[in-house]
Design a protein around this nucleic acid. Sequence first.
DNA 1: ATGAAAGCGCTAACAA
DNA 2: TTGTTAGCGCTTTCAT
Lengths: 361, 361
Amino acid sequence: MSATIKDIAKRTGLGLATISSYLNGGNVREKNRVKIEEAIKELNFEVNEVARGLKTNRTKMIGIIIPEMNNTFFAEIITEAEDILRSHGYATMICDCRSDAKREKEAADFLFHRRVDGLIIMPTGPARISLERFVESGRPIVMIDRKRDEISCDCVLVDNDGAARDAVERLIHAGHRKIGMIEGPEDVYTTKERRRGYKTALENAGIIPEERLIVKGNYTIAGGAAAMRKLRNDNPDMTAVFVSNYEMTVGAMMEINDLGISVPEELSVIGFDNIDFAKAAVPRLSIVTQPTKEIAREAAAVLLQRLDERSGKTLSVPSAHPLDSSSGNSHNVKIIKLKTKFMEGRSIKKLEDPAAESGEK
Amino acid sequence: MSATIKDIAKRTGLGLATISSYLNGGNVREKNRVKIEEAIKELNFEVNEVARGLKTNRTKMIGIIIPEMNNTFFAEIITEAEDILRSHGYATMICDCRSDAKREKEAADFLFHRRVDGLIIMPTGPARISLERFVESGRPIVMIDRKRDEISCDCVLVDNDGAARDAVERLIHAGHRKIGMIEGPEDVYTTKERRRGYKTALENAGIIPEERLIVKGNYTIAGGAAAMRKLRNDNPDMTAVFVSNYEMTVGAMMEINDLGISVPEELSVIGFDNIDFAKAAVPRLSIVTQPTKEIAREAAAVLLQRLDERSGKTLSVPSAHPLDSSSGNSHNVKIIKLKTKFMEGRSIKKLEDPAAESGEK
DNA sequence: ATGAAAGCGCTAACAA
DNA sequence: TTGTTAGCGCTTTCAT
């Protein structure tokens, strides 16, 4: 169907290599340049990326693996990443693994099989298992949002620890001392970091963190709802709650709604991530927000850089030491950590005379 | 890096063609079959889809173009579609065009250039311009959610007219007569259909639709908020409002929130699409829901079928009549229309003694 | 059922 | 600078 460089060669009377070289930024006599350009226009020529890929062993495709497409936080990131990568000539293949390690592995295999040049992933399960083939073949991987130590690669994260600490400190400053937390699945990086921030804030204020005030919500809406119920049941004295991701925030609000709890009079709430939801909530929710576009930009930038670094080298150095750091995977791994923000709503009640001051001791 | 069929041939002592044929479902002597399988296992062979694509002119890739990735409705559809297509060996390349016709055209060009085998699209702008190349080259297109008549192709839609009619009828049955509607951009298919349903419901009940009660919200959160404000300002007598997509529902709720309007006492509301949001809202929102998974399944099914039909034929019949129906594009186009559902919340007030009955005349 | 050979559209030596 | 040539890994006649 479409024209090939052969057609261009024929049309211009030039050789194949000349056309190819021109197409790849080589120098051609001005006269010929014009001729080639003309032929390209008239024949409506477009480089066949498939053929090029076969020859160069580069597909100009990037794989993206995320836990859930239907999740604003992830969606915002990948839409931005896709945009940037596409503008650099890279196509992206996005795989939603529904927070399932098995599906994640399948997606990784699929993408590897499809010979993507690189990978952006928010790891759900054990990274080693699904990603070692990429590492072995020298294809760059960028982890975002979550970090897994089994694989050494570039990471773009946010300061989860600081974000949680800041949020909880705000509650403390408002006079709260019995502060609940709804957290994610325990094996996830962000869960640990956010929990750490929560605890640090309490400890810094001289409050002893209590396990009964921390409930797992699994980063899902249903989990958030269930966690909220449990927190409320088990802790009648709880005056505030910090919900550590968006889905659980929605779930918690649903439950608060169902239980007829009034925010912030009976319970102060700090949620996570989705500005629109926070604004639509009654009352407006105070939330931690993450810089999604920046995450995407940083991830795309570092990936493109790696791709560029590698573009000279021949693909897939046999690599005698698959996952050993010896090969030079870990020497200069980039860990980028971005700052979160806090958006004030009306969901935090200022306790007038904190029991903490007078009654506690 | 990875093994090729050459390696397999060498290892088994068989010819290239035999391996290839076996790989494509051909018959081989049992003895050889075993040998081949063994070699595949041991050499870790995987077909190089790129090489295959070059030869067959089929990339096993599907392009998906959507207005917004960051939109639950779309996200739910594509995540399901991606899953199905992948399980059939097709990779998907998703492009978010941010509801911008120019970006949409760029995305279509990009995907065409990447030689995707087929396309799923929720058209934003003029389809003719961006899709004619696909049609010319005989690549199947499936439109979902929206239909554009410039291009004849398979469509998977929902019964928007019926959905809107049903929603408005519920308000009417609850005694409302001054019912506002927040609608989408006027050139969009779903906008027209939903508006039609709204009007039909009113007319059937003997109520004359008034333009002042219909405000454009552009299918965005901000638009929904602005529309809500305008509706409220211009129509102090309005007792109910039907918001015709999810984003605008969020926006409208934000505004209702800001204006301190109590739902459903002062205003009854019917929203759209997002079950979780509806449940998290105070009070629970009554909404129209669309069968996203089913849309995805139908779209994938019809696309796969077209792909299959075409798989015998050689690619890109020169097609003397690019967009003419003569070539047989329009002969058996499938239009699939799915039913929506309604989820009851607590956002509709039953008017005890509708002013309509006594006071109106 | 199997093998030999040609070629998909491109790039990359190497010569000229 | 430009042209010639040899593949990249696969499928596909066409023989055998």
